[in-house]
């Protein structure tokens, strides 16, 4: 852990209220059984810090579903996003490599990225489908965040992880009492982290690791894909909710404008070429395409993983398909 500081919860929220004059401040809030980012207004209720995980993946803040990328009419708000889980922070590796590729920088993504302060959080309560640990990601902020925070015993424990984070932290320090974090609190967090890791490992003990999954997919027979794809309706829920799926289509508008709109390989016709030929014509081939992309192709291209183990695609599948079941079956006894 970076050097940590401690501030009372009430002071922290007072600071956020003050910051919301300049920024859109997003907080994780619990609705029924799920957690969602809410913009900070009035007295926030049901705030769910340290709990895995917002339904909406972080990418949505950086790559809107639909956006005019030629005249760029979007309002690029300044955002503070609180409670980003480690898996979503890891997903930024791939997104940055794609959208900030030095040769072709996507301006809109760049501006959104620059305008956003990311405050990562520990997952001290995990979701049943969380499996970050199987892919070497820890359930606490490791990379790609500006600040990280954990709420324990009515106190907020904060550490600073970037220049942008330091700037905000300095503002905090100048108007509210901030002290060095007590050892007791840090120990408590460290202890909790260990417990959560054990729990994640236990929940996922049959799941093969990343590399092994890629190898298994490449060696797999069509039969298993045909079988699992039977209930797939090509709705694209899995790609929409995935923190690393960002495929899109450019749509032309008058005045040579273009709209970048979310698209997905799960939709029929995604790879159709003139004369109607389509390598992804068959449903199970489309279904498998997503896994080949995540576990074989993207890692090959970008040296970044493309599944961070957030489990959202499992929650959201209306065909009740669990990718992890597929991989556990493939791994068989030596999984």
């Amino acid at each position: 852990m970076n050097p940590s500081f401690q501030i009372h919860k009430n002071d922290w929220f007072a600071f956020l209220h003050k910051s919301s004059e300049e920024y859109n401040v997003y907080l994780p809030v619990r609705f029924n059984n799920h957690i969602e980012y809410e913009i900070l207004q009035d007295e926030p209720e049901n705030i769910a810090l340290n709990i895995a995980r917002p339904v909406t993946p972080l990418k949505t803040f950086l790559l809107p579903v639909k956006e005019n990328v030629v005249i760029n009419t979007s309002i690029h708000n300044k955002n503070i996003i609180i409670g980003v889980p480690s898996c979503d922070l890891h997903a930024l590796d791939l997104l940055d490599k794609i959208y900030l590729d030095q040769k072709f920088i996507d301006d809109s993504y760049r501006i959104n990225r620059e305008n956003t302060i990311l405050i990562g959080t520990d997952c001290l309560e995990i979701h049943e489908n969380c499996h970050c640990i199987s892919y070497n990601i820890n359930p606490f902020p490791e990379i790609n965040h500006d600040l990280s925070l954990v709420a324990v015993n009515g106190e907020i424990i904060i550490s600073v992880n970037s220049g942008k984070g330091k700037k905000l932290f300095d503002e905090l320090k100048s108007s509210f009492p901030v002290k060095e974090a007590e050892k007791m609190q840090i120990d408590k967090i460290q202890e909790k982290r260990k417990e959560i890791i054990i729990q994640l490992k236990k929940n996922n003990k049959s799941l093969p690791d990343y590399q092994k999954t890629g190898d298994l997919i490449q060696k797999s027979e069509d039969e298993i894909w045909e079988r699992y794809a039977r209930t797939c309706v090509s709705c694209g829920a899995c790609t929409t909710i995935c923190p690393t799926c960002t495929c899109f289509l450019l749509i032309d508008r008058p005045d040579f404008e273009k709209v970048r709109q979310v698209d997905a390989c799960q939709f029929p016709g995604f790879e159709k070429i003139a004369a109607g030929e389509d390598p992804l014509k068959r449903k199970y081939v489309r279904f498998r395409n997503r896994y080949l992309c995540k576990y074989v192709w993207r890692p090959g291209q970008f040296s970044s993983i493309a599944c961070t183990g957030c489990g959202r695609c499992i929650d959201s599948c209306i065909g009740n398909i669990s990718k992890n079941e597929i991989f556990i079956e493939m791994a068989g006894d030596d999984g």
Partner: peptide, 21 residues
């Protein structure tokens, strides 16, 4: 090689040929 294409920039994902854009 001919593939479906949209962006031409290695971003939109339409032109994947295995690991290649």
């Amino acid at each position: 090689m001919e593939k479906n294409m949209s962006c031409g920039l290695g971003k939109c994902g339409h032109c994947m040929l295995g690991k290649y854009f």
